[in-house]
Structures are given as structure tokens and as C-alpha cells.
Amino acid sequence: MKQTEALSPERLDWLAARRREGQRIALWRLVLILAFFAFWEICAAAGLIDPFLMSSPSRIAAATLRLARQGNLLPHIVITCMETVAGFLLGTGLGAAIAMLLWWTPRFARVMEPILVVLNSLPKIALGPIFIVWMGPGVGAIIVMGLAVSLITTVLEVYHGFSRTDPDKIRLVECMGGSRRQVFFKVVAPSNLPALVNALKVNVGLSWVGVIVGEYLVSRAGLGYLIVYGGQVFRLDLVMASVIILGALAAVMYLGVVWLEKRITAAMLAA
């Protein structure tokens, strides 16, 4: 018999035990979530809570189906997702570009540093009405909200990464005749790719906040609009359904960025 990777019995036991433990954790997670919804449903059915105010899982499901059948769900989902992706890509891209500018011109960086710190502590959401006045109550203003919440943190985070690049790696390139541009693109940017992807991860979450607040303010379309509208007409089923869909979408997008992170790291090592 061919001897391939003979694992010891202890090793096999340990692996099996670990796999069982993983399954057990996943099961508990599922049980907890199902129990929560079941409890909610039972309380509503038994009259312990007022379904009109608290809704219930079955009413949420029914509301979601009704919306979907009327063709009133997908457009809202699409528009919110589009705004969020645009906001967070623009916020991250613009943030990284500004960080690059700061790295390039150290004097500019020294001038900007306290200003950026102050801007960062400002609640960006307060700027919403200004964007709406400037850009009109539409998708543009909402995307700018999504951008605004993530922009300054991205600048600070990415610039911090850039300025901590190993000085000997920079010396190495300079010593071989590299220009400042080459230093940036051959050393600084690639060594900070992990920091950039990490900024993406944080920014997805931030952009959801910006976009939903933007939709509250503009109130034309999107999940944020559905939530506000549902609240105004006292249809809590609609509000709850939107919130749950929102949660699911945020989770999916986060997983998407995590997947991207893995791909980038793998590509960097394979390049």
C-alpha cells in the first residue's frame, strides 16, 4: 500500500473533534436565531405584544412577498446597493488619492494634519442638508453622503500606512536610482495594499450609514426611504422587512470585500 500522509490516531481524533465542535457552534447559532423569531411569532400570536406596533415574522414575510409581487422591492434594493457601492468606492478611491498626495508633498501633509483630525471628529451626517441643497434631493446627494462618512478616515488611515513604510526599502529603491514616483508605485503602494483593503472593509459599513441617512433625508427611493415611509404610515411590517433586508445586504457586501481581500492577497503572492 502506498504510504501517503499517514495521520496518527490522535490527530484524526483531534480533527474529528474540532469538526464536530465547529458544527455544534453553527447549529447553536441557527437555533438562537430561529428561537428569536419563533418567540417573536408566538408572542404576537398569543397577544402578548401588539403586532401592529411590533410586527411579527409572518407579517414581515407577508409584507416582503407582497412588495416583491407588486415589483416594489427590487428597485429599492438595487438603488440602495448602487448608492452604497458608489459611495464606498468613491470614498475609498478619493481617500487613497488624497493620502497619496499627502505622502508626495510632506509640507502639504503637515499643513493638513490638524485640519483633517478636526474634520474627522465632525459628525459628517450633519452635512446632509448641505449636500441636498447643493446637489438636489436625489441619488447624487445620497452618494456624496456615503462618500463623506468614509472619506476622512480613509485619508488618515491610508496616509498613516504610507508614512510608516519601511525606510530601508525606500532607501534601497532610491539607491538604485528610483524616482519618487517609482518609490511610491513600487514600494509604498504595494506594501500598503493590505491597509487599503482593510479601509475598504471599514468603509462598507460606514457607507451604509451614510446612504441610509441620505435616503431618510431625501425620501424618494431605496430601503431607507421604505423605512421612513413605513414609519410615517404606521406600517411596521414594512419597516421591519426593510431593516432585515438591509442587514442581509450589508452582510453580503462585507463578505464580498473579505473575498476580494483574499483574492488580492493571493494575487499579490502569485504575481
Partner: peptide
């Protein structure tokens, strides 16, 4: 240098 400073991404 003291460290090889090979670029891990190359």
C-alpha cells in the same frame, strides 16, 4: 542591508 528587503509581492 541587514534585512534582505525582498519584495514579498514579487
Amino acid at each position: 542591508f541587514q534585512h534582505d528587503h525582498l519584495f514579498e509581492w514579487r
